[in-house]
Amino acid sequence: MATIADVARAAGVHRSTVSRILRDPKAFRGETRTRVLEAAARLDYRPSRIAQALSGGASPLVPLVVPDISNPFFARVARGAEEIARASGLHIVVCSTGGDVEAEVAYLQAMSDLDTPCILFTPSTDTVAAQVLSIAQHTAVVLIDRSLPETDLRCVRVDHTQAAAAGTRHLLTRGHRRVVCVSGPMSASSARERVAGYQTVMADAGLPAQVVEGDFTIAGGRHAAARLFARDEPPTAILAANDLCAVGLLAAARDAGLRVPDDVAVLGFDDLDVAQHVNPSLTTLRQPSAELGGQAARLALADAGLGDGSDVVLTLQAELIVRESA
């Protein structure tokens, strides 16, 4: 099915021009109107019902496409983006893909078919790069927290490599030598970058690096712990994929009769609200999640000509928060 972007390409104009002409053809005259109408007819374009519903003067929407809105990290990102968007008279609409690549592509294509100024996107995998680049030809796209290889898209991210290195050094200074990294899915650039930081510090210390691929959930932490605690020489410290994974590790350690941090130390990533309230409280690396969303919204609006911002890649820093677990 043809999209508004297809019509824009065929007519040699911007999507917004197509949207305005198709919304009210009688208000336009001349060659541009003719090219747009002919392209729409040739491609058998049918306007999106959602786009038609929005054409009555409602504020434009800014889609935020994320892997899992049930993860409080992305809820904070959304809050930061919403604050900036609202100041420009726009509204954030959240699309949660469940980490499904087909759902990501479907959401991106559907959102690009709207007359939206920009899209904010956290990819779950690198494999969507080609589709994102195609959409970015007509709609401003800004990546949040994760990058896509061989693209020059604007991106707001944390220095995951440096953050993981700082967390690993903290565990080593506490006397640990069997330090394991339970990573997120390696299809995510953030997981790969954190593993790289961990591996560098372990190599510099002359210690073996051990990576167990997991995910960013409590269940993923429990599953990784079952494998780790069954080893003849279990780790004395674990660098977790994120705070949710760390909560799963803490629960599994308690079930196994292990004391944290005496028998095994656990260090998270994100500093979610839950980090302060688990027992023991969680040592973690604080991501400026709301700032990630806010800065991404600023760059997206600038790319769409609705604000100021010149950065292509904006890198923020994480902060080590020392509590009881490590």
Rank of each mutant, 00 (worst) to 15 (best):
S281M: 07
E291H: 10
V260D: 02
G294L: 06
L267V: 00
R286S: 12
A252H: 05
V260A: 03
L301G: 08
H277A: 06
L299D: 11
P261S: 06
V264N: 01
L299R: 11
A297S: 14
R298K: 13
A251K: 12
A253Q: 11
P288N: 06
A252R: 11
L285V: 12
A256G: 08
A252W: 06
L292F: 04
V266M: 01
V278I: 15
L272E: 06
E291D: 15
P261K: 07
L285W: 06
D271L: 01
E291C: 05
R254H: 15
V274I: 15
T283Y: 00
G293R: 15
H277F: 11
G257H: 10
D262I: 06
L267M: 01
D270F: 02
P261A: 07
V266W: 00
Q295A: 14
L282I: 06
S289Y: 07
D273H: 11
A300L: 13
L301H: 09
L301D: 08
R286K: 13
L285C: 08
V278E: 10
P261F: 02
R286L: 07
P280A: 01
T283C: 00
R298A: 02
G293V: 15
S281V: 03
S281E: 11
N279Y: 10
A265Q: 05
V278C: 15
L301M: 15
D262Y: 04
L267K: 00
L285A: 09
Q276D: 12
A252F: 03
P261V: 03
Q287N: 07
A275P: 13
L282G: 02
N279W: 06
P288C: 04
A296S: 15
G257S: 05
T283L: 00
N279G: 04
D262M: 09
T284K: 05
F269Y: 15
P261L: 05
L258E: 10
R259A: 10
L292Q: 09
A265R: 04
P280I: 00
